[in-house]
Simulated assay, not measured.
Amino acid sequence: MLNAVIYVACALICLALLLNLGRLLAGPSMVDRILALDTLCINSLALILLLGLSLGSPLYFEAALLIALLGFVTTSALCKYLLRGDIIE
């Protein structure tokens, strides 16, 4: 029963990833593209966590933690570049 729910959730998250990719490619402004990239990172993180639950391996949870950290740093750097035009002052 739990495996069926995980597969349905994975399918829905894959659909959300495709929709986010569409927003990333066709976003009218740079802010929309940055938000789509951040949402893409969060959805891929959820997909990796579901895969870790399905397989029962703790290695996937560590990878998800690294991707979450990388996504936060990337979003922060892009927003800072968009506001000031320079990342490192």
Rank of each mutant, 00 (worst) to 15 (best):
I34Q: 06
F72L: 13
S57F: 11
A36Q: 08
S54W: 08
A46I: 01
M1C: 08
C10R: 05
D32G: 03
A63L: 12
N43K: 03
R23Q: 08
V5Y: 05
L40C: 13
S54G: 05
L83G: 04
T75P: 04
V8E: 07
G22C: 15
G52P: 03
I67G: 07
L65A: 11
A64V: 00
L24Y: 10
L78W: 00
A11N: 05
T74I: 00
L45K: 02
L50T: 03
V31M: 14
L37C: 11
A36M: 10
I42A: 10
L17W: 06
Y60P: 07
L78C: 13
G27F: 02
L12A: 14
R33C: 03
P28A: 13
S54A: 11
I87F: 08
L70F: 15
A26E: 09
L83V: 02
P58C: 04
L83D: 02
F72G: 06
A26G: 04
A9G: 05
L59C: 11
G52Q: 03
S44K: 00
C14R: 10
I42Y: 05
A11P: 06
L24D: 13
S54E: 08
A9I: 03
L47K: 03
S44F: 11
A46E: 03
S44A: 14
L19S: 06
I88C: 14
A11S: 13
K80Q: 00
A4D: 15
G56T: 09
L66R: 02
G22S: 14
A63H: 01
V73C: 13
A16F: 14
D32M: 04
L37E: 06
T74E: 12
L24K: 12
T74S: 14
G27N: 04
L50A: 00
G22T: 14
L12K: 03
V5N: 05
L37Y: 05
L47S: 02
S76R: 05
D86H: 09
A63Y: 05
I67E: 06
A11C: 14
V8W: 07
F72Y: 14
L55Q: 08
G22V: 15
L45H: 01
L17I: 10
R33G: 07
L2A: 09
S76W: 04
F72T: 04
G85E: 07
N3S: 14
N3H: 05
L17S: 10
N43L: 02
L55A: 02
R23D: 00
A64R: 01
L18E: 13
L53A: 09
N20K: 06
L35H: 02
P28M: 07
A4Y: 11
G27E: 00
A77R: 11
L21P: 07
I34R: 01
E62K: 08
L24N: 12
C41M: 09
L18F: 11
N43G: 06
L82I: 12
N3G: 10
Y60M: 15
L59V: 14
L82K: 11
P58T: 09
L40K: 08
N3W: 06
F72H: 07
Y60L: 15
I6L: 01
